[in-house]
Amino acid sequence: MSTHEDVLSSENLPHEPEKATLEGKNKFLGFWFFLGGETVLFASLFGTYLALRNSFGNAEGTPTQELFGLELVFIMTVILLTSSLTSVYAMYHMKNHDFKKMMVWLAITVILGASFLGLEVYEFNHYVHEYGHTFTSHAFGSAFYALVGFHGAHVAFGLCWILALMFRNAKRGLNLYNAPKFYIASLYWHFIDVVWVFIFTVVYLMGKVG
């Protein structure tokens, strides 16, 4: 183990700087394992949603077929998928040790993520005001907002995380200490996209079909 290297220096970066140190390797593995756990977390929410979908009890409510529209969800999906690609570009430049270009692509990712979040807020607002579809109005509402809201909270957290990393490291450049941090933040961002793929399929598309 090379303990004497200065992990804060931007010189002489190795190939794959994100996995060059033991700390980096640990972070990389640990974060993947965390994502394995997140899979079960979202599965519990998906299961709850599927069990309570269109379940209103004695309360009034709008069923999924009437509630959901496809246009907005399609736009949101394309935005989030694109942001996944832009974060791949960021990691591509990180591997080539091109810090500036990495920051540019991360910034694009953040902008796309923020516009996704904005659209989601607009969508929720629309449901609440047009259909009276709220978190407390019936079990379907609770389950819907719990699942989609949990995903939205993940997006918001991801945005804050990437922004914090960008501001933090703007002046210091890429080094062995922060490369793993950028890398796992991008993994997290991809995972958010994975979850969204299932949300638009299971919640919106299957909801529209009935």
């Binding site: 996995k19 593995l29 993947w32 394992f33 994502l35 394995g36 756990g37 997140e38 899979t39 079960v40 979202f42 599965a43 519990s44 998906f46 299961g47 709850t48 599927l50 069990a51």
Partner: peptide
Amino acid sequence: GHEMPAIMIYSGIFAAVLTILALTTITWI
């Protein structure tokens, strides 16, 4: 170098599938 991540993700998917299967079939629906 992604063998362990693959194991964990697939184990997660295994647990996830069981969870969703149970909640969609045997909750008195």
